[in-house]
Design a protein around this nucleic acid. Structure first.
Length: 256
DNA sequence: ATGGTTGTAAAACAA
């Protein structure tokens, strides 16, 4: 089974690229973030034509997450169990081939010290609590998505420049490690030690051309799944296509 | 350089 995660920055603006990528990469599961549309505007029929089922949790203008899968997914959950009405559409979970797939779009945080930064840290605390209350570490659990945090210096093109800034500040990294401490392993780091591999590049200042990026999109797995993870990579090609998302897909392959 | 780019949606806001 191949699973991928991709922040598309509007599914309708990116539809031609997503369809093209599905046809060449042929993942079994594709987790999407930043749909920027309500459920009714999600182009599910286009994915049906390529053989994918859609589980969607949309929202007007901002956020929105979805899970595409060749096999039908079961037990679809939208948002945290204790979410209030109108809460951000940032989490969708579904079971596929015995794997509990949790797809998240962690808040960006705007800048360190802002209200949105505090919201990000609180959301991350809730995500850790969600795993404590919902799953056992011996189950096959997978957490993926746009985490909006680079875990380590080797995940940042210029750590000195980024130190203390949103996406790489100490409190965000601590909040991220707290989630990881539930029992996750970074699938990408099972297979690659060196730095310089990024999943996001700012649209501005030729950041992609200069490889000024961050590794902020991740696939994390519980212990039983880590044993079955054969490969993980970042597919930079869609970032070179016309009208790209600022993120590119991250992929993992499992012996399932 | 107090900037730069993109998407939504119709002027700012979010990233």
């Amino acid at each position: 089974m191949r699973l991928a995660t991709w922040n598309v920055n509007s599914i309708n603006a990116r539809l031609p690229l997503v369809l093209k990528w599905l046809e060449v990469a042929k993942p079994d599961v594709l987790c999407l973030q930043e749909l920027k549309c309500v459920d009714e505007k999600f182009p599910a029929e286009e994915f049906t034509k390529l053989g994918y089922n859609s589980a969607v949790f949309g929202q007007r203008t901002y956020n929105g997450v979805a899970i595409l899968s060749r096999e039908a997914s079961t037990n679809i959950q939208r948002g945290f169990p204790d979410d209030e009405e109108g809460a951000h559409a940032r989490l969708i979970a579904a079971t596929i081939k015995g794997v509990r797939v949790v797809n998240v779009y962690i808040p960006n945080g705007q800048f360190v010290g802002s209200d949105k930064y505090r919201f990000k840290l609180e959301w991350m605390r809730r995500l850790r609590r969600f795993f404590d209350e919902s799953y056992e570490t011996k189950e096959r659990v997978l957490l993926c998505g746009d985490f909006n945090v680079a875990p380590e210096e080797r995940d940042v093109h210029d750590p000195a420049l980024w130190e203390g800034h949103v996406l790489f500040s100490k409190r965000e990294r601590a909040a991220l490690m707290n989630i990881k401490d539930w029992g996750f392993t970074d699938a990408f780091r099972l297979h690659t030690e060196e730095g310089g591999h990024y999943s996001w590049w700012d649209y501005r200042q030729g950041a992609f051309r200069r490889n000024n990026g961050l590794r902020i999109d991740h696939i994390w797995v519980s212990e039983p799944l880590a044993k079955d993870c054969k490969e993980s990579w970042i597919d930079k090609e869609p970032r070179t296509w016309e009208r790209p998302s600022d993120h590119t897909p991250v992929v993992a392959r499992f012996r399932i």
